[in-house]
Lab assay of single mutants.
Amino acid sequence: MQIFVKTATGKTITLEVEPSDTIENVKAKIQDKEGIPPDQQRLAFAGKQLEDGRTLSDYNIQKESTLHLALR
């Protein structure tokens, strides 16, 4: 499925993911596309910060959802 990640600079990244993917996997995909190390990424959805060990389906993130990326 496709999801979107909006960066602090307003850029939107499109990612191909599975509901079973962990947040860690998603951060690795962002690193592949943007070169941002996962340990510098903070992802949020619906106002909640997402934890590495959880999956997209844990957070009820569905196709075409938009996550927000902040850098630490």
Rank of each mutant, 00 (worst) to 15 (best):
M1W: 08
M1Y: 10
Q2F: 13
Q2H: 14
Q2V: 12
I3Q: 00
I3R: 00
I3T: 01
F4K: 07
F4Q: 05
V5G: 01
V5Y: 02
V5T: 02
V5F: 03
T7I: 09
T7E: 06
T7K: 08
A8E: 09
A8F: 13
A8C: 05
A8P: 12
T9Q: 12
T9P: 06
G10I: 04
G10W: 05
K11Y: 12
T12M: 14
T14M: 10
T14D: 08
T14L: 07
T14H: 08
L15G: 00
E16S: 11
E16F: 14
E16K: 07
V17P: 01
E18S: 11
E18V: 13
P19E: 11
P19A: 13
S20C: 05
D21N: 09
I23A: 03
I23H: 02
N25D: 15
N25W: 11
N25T: 12
V26C: 03
V26N: 00
K27S: 02
K27F: 02
A28H: 11
A28R: 13
A28V: 15
A28L: 13
K29F: 11
K29G: 05
I30H: 00
I30T: 02
Q31V: 05
D32F: 12
K33C: 04
E34R: 05
E34S: 12
E34I: 14
I36P: 04
I36K: 02
P37R: 06
P37C: 05
P37W: 05
P37M: 09
P38G: 09
P38N: 10
D39K: 07
D39N: 15
Q40R: 12
Q40S: 12
Q40F: 09
Q41M: 12
Q41A: 04
R42E: 14
R42D: 08
L43K: 00
L43F: 03
L43C: 01
L43N: 00
L43V: 03
A44C: 05
F45N: 03
A46M: 13
A46F: 08
A46S: 12
A46H: 15
A46I: 08
G47P: 01
K48Y: 11
K48G: 07
L50S: 01
L50V: 03
E51Y: 07
E51L: 07
E51S: 06
E51C: 05
D52H: 07
D52W: 03
D52A: 07
D52Q: 05
G53N: 13
G53H: 12
R54S: 12
R54T: 10
R54K: 13
T55R: 07
L56H: 00
D58E: 11
D58T: 05
Y59H: 03
Y59F: 04
Y59C: 03
N60G: 15
N60H: 11
I61F: 02
Q62A: 08
Q62V: 10
Q62L: 13
Q62D: 09
K63D: 15
K63G: 14
K63M: 11
E64W: 10
E64N: 15
T66P: 02
T66N: 05
T66E: 07
T66V: 11
T66D: 03
L67Y: 01
L67E: 01
H68L: 10
L69Q: 03
A70Q: 11
A70D: 08
A70I: 12
L71A: 07
L71W: 06
L71K: 08
L71R: 11
L71S: 13
R72F: 11
R72A: 14
R72K: 14
R72I: 13
